[in-house]
Design a binder for these strands. Structure first.
Lengths: 195, 195
DNA sequence: CTCGATTCTGCAAGTGACTACCATATGATA
DNA sequence: TATCATATGGTAGTCACTTGCAGAATCGAG
């Protein structure tokens, strides 16, 4: 929880991180994910392949990022203290929907589209979702409002809502704001549950 | 839909398929998934590595099987004609729960445990779930009872229920029947939905 | 500013999953 | 038996990913 020191070293690390990611998207969006090698990306970012692996672990990891896991966890923890679990999920989701991304919406949409178009990347994304689903399950249990099985179901539903919202936002209507997509999703859930 | 001819060739193919899978589980359950190579498995099953890849595609594929996708789809299609989508899902799930596996329950439980213990296998399983989720979405849309977004949510919920039931059956109580686990799961869903 | 400690990077060598291709063996068919 | 279709084995190659080490950049203290 200590504030990370903004030393020169930290700056350079962040720069390198973003440079690798940018070059990776640039190369892959023209040639395709499988057509390019990690060495290609490394060369374009002017680092060694070792460095790429040290930063991202896997080739897929370069294209996946999670800037929402932390705020989502915090938001949900708060909401869980004041209402029923499912309502807390919807509330947290709505807040998340209004947060905005660190790059323009159109660009983010394009990246999501790219990930979804590439089977290997979709699979890797599913993996990170799985992990987060597990953390959510623990969170629900610790919040004390549900037994483990209900927590598991709740976590699965939550990830489904997140995924559905992202997909709806990305593929349904290119003009829609993300918060509108989230609203559509929660409305649709009510329809499914018949209430 | 034509009944597959039970020629000698087909028999041998089935035998080879099962022999590879059995040897793979046998080797991996002692040495670990990552510790053994595809060549090890091939040698133990007395085939070439090429053949293993022709049968299973990937190393993970050897350990994953789906004997439920087809009956699940058929069951669900029928149920969707006579009741609301969510109820149809629960009905189909209950029917599925009573089907039984092609190997003893304990052995199946052990295999599931093994898959869940091995990150690479869990990830691969998630991939097949993702694919089936997509098919379910299409199924719900074609059944005509929901719009695409609701269908997507419904499909996600369905896969969550399946996964939750399997996990509960595998890890909660070693004596429980699978159908009992399914019943617990549907009950738990009602609890989550507050009804 | 200097120097020792810490951290980051590049290089080299190796493993193993996976693919493409061709030759050969085996089962199906007439 | 002769012919055709298909399944298998072997070989060579690509590339993701790991490990260990040497050198370079950066940091913090005096």
């Amino acid at each position: 929880m200590a504030a990370p020191p903004v030393t020169l070293r930290q700056q350079k690390k962040r720069e390198t991180f973003l440079r690798i990611q940018d070059q990776a998207f640039r190369l892959a969006e023209t040639a395709g994910f499988t057509a390019i090698t990690v060495e290609d990306i490394a060369a374009a970012a002017r680092v060694s392949a070792s460095t790429v692996y040290r930063y991202f672990g896997t080739k897929e990891g370069i294209f996946l990022w999670d800037e929402f896991e932390l705020p989502a966890t915090e938001l949900l923890t708060v909401e869980l203290e004041r209402q029923a679990p499912l309502d807390a999920v919807l509330a947290a989701l709505t807040s998340l929907g209004g947060m905005g991304f660190h790059i323009p919406d159109d660009e983010m949409r394009q990246r999501v589209r790219f990930v979804y178009a590439e089977p290997a990347l979709r699979a890797a994304m599913g993996e990170t979702f799985q992990v987060f689903e597990g953390k959510l399950t623990d969170l629900f249990v610790e919040a004390g409002s549900t037994d483990p099985l209900a927590a598991r179901i709740l976590a699965g539903m939550t990830m489904t809502l997140v995924a559905a919202a992202v997909e709806f936002w990305t593929f349904a209507d290119p003009q829609m704001s993300f918060s509108a997509a989230v609203e559509h999703t929660t409305t649709s859930l009510d329809e499914v549950l018949g209430r």
